[in-house]
Amino acid sequence: MDPRKIYILVVAILLGIFVVAQNKSFNKLDVLSRDGKSNVFQEIQILKEKNLSLKSEMDDLEANLKLLTSQGDALKAIDDEIKRYTKISGQSPIFGPGFYIKFEGKITTPWLVDFINELWSTGAQAVAVNGIRITNETVGFDSLPQGQVLLNGSILSSPFVIEVIGESSTILGNIEVGGGILQRMKAALPGMKVSYERKDIIQMQ
């Protein structure tokens, strides 16, 4: 066969491969999506951790019930429960170890919702955005017509400082992972700057 024809054939085959590769890369861009891709190991890990947390909660509740049924300890059990629930209800100021993360630039409401969701998902115990603690009584994120973000009736503006109480290493490790929420946000919100700092004490109202 004429060597020129072989070259043409090889080039054509490569072209075919590139066409498919290009097509696939466009499909991937499509999922530059707000939900990351997880694998089976993560799936099993999530279930395992969830069950461990549930077991620990069950043990606490069983201990509490035991205290309540013993005459002398009932009052203590109630006080302990009040203290425990006060910590997470947002009714009193709290402090603890954690970190803050600062986003500079324009962020849209859905990405803030997703980021906060990721924080809870990876073990955050308390979260505040620009000083507003997120509790069950906080009015959710909203967008104003000009694109500003509203939280609990207050307009938030850049920089968005998100404070977190919890196990910093685990949470930061999960949000920074390749394909994780930070990478997806950076891809979707070009120009956004991100910085964070671990803190021994984060205080929230």
Binding site: V10, A12, F18
Partner: peptide, 23 residues
């Protein structure tokens, strides 16, 4: 004509091969 046939056949082969690997 042969060159055109080769190009077309090559592209088809490349596309099919890539799809097969990505299957």
């Amino acid at each position: 004509q042969i060159s055109v046939v080769l190009v077309a056949a090559g592209i088809c082969f490349g596309v099919l091969m890539s799809w097969q690997f990505a299957s």
